[in-house]
Design a protein around this nucleic acid. Structure first.
Length: 661
RNA sequence: GCCGACGUGGCGCAAUUGGUAGCGCACCUGUCUUGUAAACAGGUGGUUAGGGGUUCGAGUCCCCUCGUCGGCUCCA
């Protein structure tokens, strides 16, 4: 054991005694939680091989956070089995901002149990138990985990294709060597153990008190509804209490912005039970936002060479057989209704009807690209458990377009569409994007749902990918996420508090033109099939309104605000004067309101503030005698004694330039 | 669709072991009204989501339906 080995630390070659561990190298530094040894994450306690390249991994790095959260998940599982030895273990991987662990238990967890489990976890953490790695043979593991049916199943999967294992399963058994992690008390007692690939924190102590159990819910074993349902507990863990607090505050902020709550408070829309689940109605104020959006988006489409068209909400079902939507997607369409011997269906997508407009007469290559656009109302029978506010509804308005182009024109058309949708999103105040390229599933049972030849898919995917790369935006692959008729690019936008939303989609479709027999006459007199490019800019108007409500927390930029200017007289006497100013604004197309209620001034200010109107104009004696008004902005700041003409200019300019104030 | 929780006037909430449904805001009426987040007083409004059952008696207990919330699955 006296022989030295050489290890390389941050580029520095060092000679150390054989058996040296990463803990020996970095142990003094408490923020180092694991080591990257020759590119692999390892426990600090493992002896280093000769010639190893070793890097410290700190708890606040991405890898470090994952280890922290994975170890916290283990402590949760330990606590659950301590309280209920009958609980069977599923998997417990780290996820974004936290972790979960799945359990098979007789009774689902309730919030009180989560609180109690936190306490049990805290005791384990305070004990400073160490995670000790132990390599085991498959048979050994099977014996040791005889009471853990799910773990046994994972052992059986080991080495299987990644597709077969559930998300997170690799955290438990990845690689060929099985390992069990024992949680060992300071006196050497083994408190608990779990099949796990690791690595783990050196000690539970490092979790400190910066963790929290968030919620619980059902989750299918290995992500398939054919499997039994386990009970999942979600939690979060951070390097410090302060970071945990900041995270909890972020969750609270998201709750404050919830578009369902703000929609009711601001009187924008509602979801009457009488209509049915997932069917929103827009109140006058929400109607203003919807109309402003639609007006602007319609105008921009026309400027960009689209033709505005219109189609009905319902049609005979043969159309959807032609398009290929039926029978594949029958379960997400509302059931048919029989009329005069024909089955009618509510429209779930606009493209088939646009195809009929295309084929309503002979088309020439001179007409292409031909771009049809509309706000198409579609109805989808979303499963009862997924309907959610405005973001997942059963009746919605798509800002949908279909470009019919020659195969040669397709790349340019896609670039044009991408540039267009990005510019539209920027106009609405979203400017942090990345793109996702959704392609078909090539293996497994899902592969069958995609129609078309390999060549067609490859060609379409290549064209989309190139257009996406040309934007210079980050591009993320999404295998298996394509529509059945072709690959798609989607635009993911980050909102004001960092959440991403899938908004625009652009899809390349070689299937429907063939199915509908679409053709145009080319310059050489032959008949050719156009390529069809689907594009939704906001996805659905309803959903986008929901996203904007959360993005702006209800404080819309003036051009979208239902009420743009609210007049608040200091006393009744000044109402007429203010009304006159508002009249001048109204003449310029500004949406104004006067608070002529018999509330007193401070109450009117409070109401104005709660309504989130961008410009509150106040007038009292001083303003009136100076021919001026005073501004109160949403942040509470003021600007007093502004000459009326100046005030009008400021407001009109803010609205016209679509800026936020 | 699956697992769980929940459903009380427009909104937010109360209602001891089953024993005559309350409060705040909003709304209406009146008095009041001068400078930046709540003047005062009075009043209207609920067959406790809907239906069925247990009970002398149900907002409270049981069943069904609808809806909401949190997960899972799904999302052309």
């Amino acid at each position: 054991m006296s022989a030295d080995i050489t290890v390389s630390i941050a580029g520095d070659e060092r000679s150390v005694p054989a058996g040296t561990t990463a803990a020996d190298l970095f142990g003094d530094d408490r923020v180092v939680v694991v080591a990257r040894v020759d590119g692999q994450l390892r426990d600090l306690a493992g002896p280093l091989p000769d010639g190893a390249v070793v890097e410290p991994v700190t708890i606040d790095s991405e890898d470090g956070l994952n280890v922290l959260r994975h170890s916290t998940a283990h402590v949760l599982a330990q606590a659950v089995q301590q309280v209920n030895p009958e609980a069977k273990l599923g998997i417990g991987p780290p996820i974004r901002d936290g972790f979960y662990y799945d359990f098979d238990v007789d009774r689902p967890f309730d919030p009180d149990q989560l609180k109690a489990l936190e306490k049990v976890m805290q005791r384990i953490i305070n004990e400073g138990q160490t995670f000790q790695r132990r390599e085991v043979e498959d048979d050994e593991a099977r014996q040791e985990l005889a009471d853990e049916p799910y773990k046994l199943e994972l052992i059986g999967l080991k080495g299987g294709s990644a597709e077969d294992s559930a998300e997170g399963a690799s955290v438990e058994v990845g690689g060929s060597q099985l390992t069990i992690y024992d949680n060992v008390r300071r006196d050497g007692d083994r408190a608990w153990g779990d099949l796990c690939r690791g690595p783990h924190l050196p000690s539970t102590k490092l979790i400190g008190n910066a963790f929290k159990l968030i919620r619980s819910g059902g989750a299918y074993w290995r992500g398939s509804e054919k499997n039994p349902q386990l009970q999942r507990i979600y939690g979060t863990a951070w390097p410090s209490k302060a970071e945990l607090k900041a995270y909890v505050e972020r969750l609270a902020e998201a709750e404050r912005r919830d578009h369902r709550k703000l929609g009711a408070e601001l009187d924008l829309y509602s979801f009457p039970d009488e209509l049915g689940s997932g069917l929103p109605v827009f109140h006058p104020k929400g109607g203003v936002i919807k109309r402003e959006m639609e007006d602007y988006v319609r105008r921009r489409h026309i400027e960009e060479g689209f033709d505005y068209v219109g189609t009905p909400h319902i049609s005979k079902d043969g159309l959807f057989h032609t398009s290929g939507h039926l029978p594949y997607y029958a379960d997400t369409m509302f059931p048919g209704m029989e009329l005069e011997g024909a089955q009618y269906r509510l429209k779930a997508m606009n493209c088939p009807m646009h195809n009929l407009i295309f084929s309503s007469r002979g088309r020439s290559y001179r007409e292409l690209p031909l771009r049809f656009f509309e706000f198409g109302s579609v109805y989808r029978y979303e499963k009862s458990g997924v309907v959610h506010g405005l973001t997942r509804v059963r009746g919605m308005t798509q800002d949908d377009s279909h470009s019919y182009v020659t195969a040669e024109q397709a790349p340019d058309e896609i670039k044009h569409l991408l540039g267009f949708v990005l510019s539209l999103l920027r106009d609405f105040g979203l400017d942090d994007f990345y793109l996702e390229l959704s392609t078909r599933e090539t293996e497994g049972e899902k592969a069958a749902k995609f129609i078309g030849s390999n060549e067609q898919w490859e060609e379409a995917t290549r064209i989309l990918e190139q257009a996406a790369l040309d934007t210079g935006l980050e591009l993320v692959a999404d295998p298996g996420g394509a529509a059945f008729y072709g690959p798609k690019i989607s635009v993911q936008a980050k909102d004001a508090i960092g959440r991403t939303w899938q908004l625009s989609t652009i899809q390349y479709d070689f299937n429907q033109p063939a199915r509908f027999g679409l053709e145009y006459q080319a310059a050489d007199g032959t008949r050719k099939q156009p390529v069809m490019i689907h594009s939704a800019k906001f996805g659905s108007i309803e959903r986008f309104i929901g996203v904007l409500v959360e993005h702006y927390a209800g404080a819309f930029p003036p051009w979208l605000s239902p009420v743009q200017v609210l007049g608040v007289p200091v006393a009744d006497e000044f109402a007429d004067y203010l009304q006159d100013v508002l009249g001048q604004l109204r003449a310029k197309g500004i949406r104004v309101e006067l608070d002529a209620s018999d509330d007193r001034f401070p109450k009117k200010i409070r109401n104005a503030s709660k309504s989130k109107v961008p410009f509150v104009l106040i007038a009292g004696d001083e303003d009136r005698s100076a021919g001026a008004v005073s501004f109160r902005y949403r942040d509470g700041s003021q600007k007093n004694g502004v000459p009326v003409a100046e005030a009008i200019t400021e407001i009109v300019e803010a609205v016209e330039s679509r800026q936020q104030v």
